[in-house]
Structures are given as C-alpha cells and as structure tokens.
Design a protein around this nucleic acid. Sequence first.
DNA 1: TAAAGTAGTTTATAAAATAAACCAAATAAT
DNA 2: ATTATTTGGTTTATTTTATAAACTACTTTA
Lengths: 97, 97
Amino acid sequence: MFKDLDPILHSQLRLAIVSLLITVEEAEFNFLKEKTGATSGNLSVQLDKLKTEGYIEVNKSFRNNYPLTVCKITKKGIGAFESYVEHLKQYINPKNG
Amino acid sequence: MFKDLDPILHSQLRLAIVSLLITVEEAEFNFLKEKTGATSGNLSVQLDKLKTEGYIEVNKSFRNNYPLTVCKITKKGIGAFESYVEHLKQYINPKNG
DNA sequence: TAAAGTAGTTTATAAAATAAACCAAATAAT
DNA sequence: ATTATTTGGTTTATTTTATAAACTACTTTA
C-alpha cells in the first residue's frame, strides 16, 4: 500500500541538498551550507553519501588558493528525487486507498 | 530557508501510521500492521512514540478474549501532520527561492 | 611569526529504526 | 489433560543514521 521512501533522500539535509541542486544545477559547498543551515561536518558527510549513491557529482578544485567543492546533480539523482516525490504523495495526500 | 521537518513525522512508518489515521479516524493494531507492512515490534514502538508525543491516543482493551489496541489521531496530531506537509512542500517543489 | 580565518574531513557520540526474542493468554491438536 | 500453535502484542538488542566535536591543511592578516 505505501511505497517505500528512498532512505537516501528521506533525510532532511540530503533532501534539502538535492532540492537545491535540482534548481541550480551546480552549487558550491558554502552555498549549500548557507542555504541548508547545516554544519560543515554534517554537510561533508551527507554530500559524500549522495555521491557514493551516484545522486550527485562532486568536483574538488582550488580557487584563489582555497579548496573549492562544487556539486552537481546527476540524472540518477534527478530520477531518484522525482520518484521520491511521487512516492511521498501517497503519504501526504489523505486519500490513500 | 528550509523549515525543519518534525522528526517525529519524518519517519516512513510513523508518517504512514498518521496518514492512515487521518483518513480513518480510528484503527486497530492489525489494520495498521497490514496497511503499513510493518513488523509488530516496530509498529508497537512507533505507536508508543506517537502516543508519547500526543499525536495519537491508544486504547487497549479486549475483544473476544484477545487484547485489542485501537489508535486514534488527536487534534495535535492532525495539526502536526498538516504543518509537516506544508514544510515538506518547500523541499519537493523545485521553486525554493 | 603568531593568531585567526577558510574550507573542509574524520572520528566519536547520540538518537533512531529495525529485528529478534520474549510474554501472556487463548485455542487447537494429541 | 498436556502439549503445540496462534493471537496480539511488548521488550531488549543490534544495526543504521544523524549530528556534533575535534582535527587537518593551508592561507591571510596583524
């Protein structure tokens, strides 16, 4: 009756990250940090999880001598997000029959 | 930017339980178990959590000599659910700006 | 050159979800 | 009548997650 919710996306922070990446298509670590309000540590861990799952790509480089981490959603990530939202509708539309 | 998601409701099983209780207004343990596909143990724990939070009422009695647990959503639970859904929309509508 | 800031990562701790084991009573089988 | 099985759960233990704290490596400023 209830479809499973992808546990990778069913996390407040990871969902926020993916939600942002869907709109901007590319974002820096600090942009994500500010928008989500996450701590650096937590953000680092969750980005890694999304990367491991293949939902995002993470590109590390340097800019003005400082490390720079840029994230981008993948096709798989977009698909997973859309699917997650579809599944979620079953839970939040009180017409689950 | 992103509003916090009530951690009590941001759980697949608890969300499913509350989603069901919103439509039926009263449900037996086994009804919830079948509809959600949860194990008894997990269901028992999560019902207790929702009860402790004041989101549901749990009435224990006997029927045909067997124990019977009946659950009902509270006003607080309805409010929390509605609020959760509102907050969630920020995450799933890719127009978060 | 010492202190403070940038941009993170890693490790440790707390909280949550899940599974396994258990319990009390009822019914069914031998 | 005693043993086994089923019902309707609860409790405890294990695994998984999330979060926070500590740390790294380097840069800039005083």
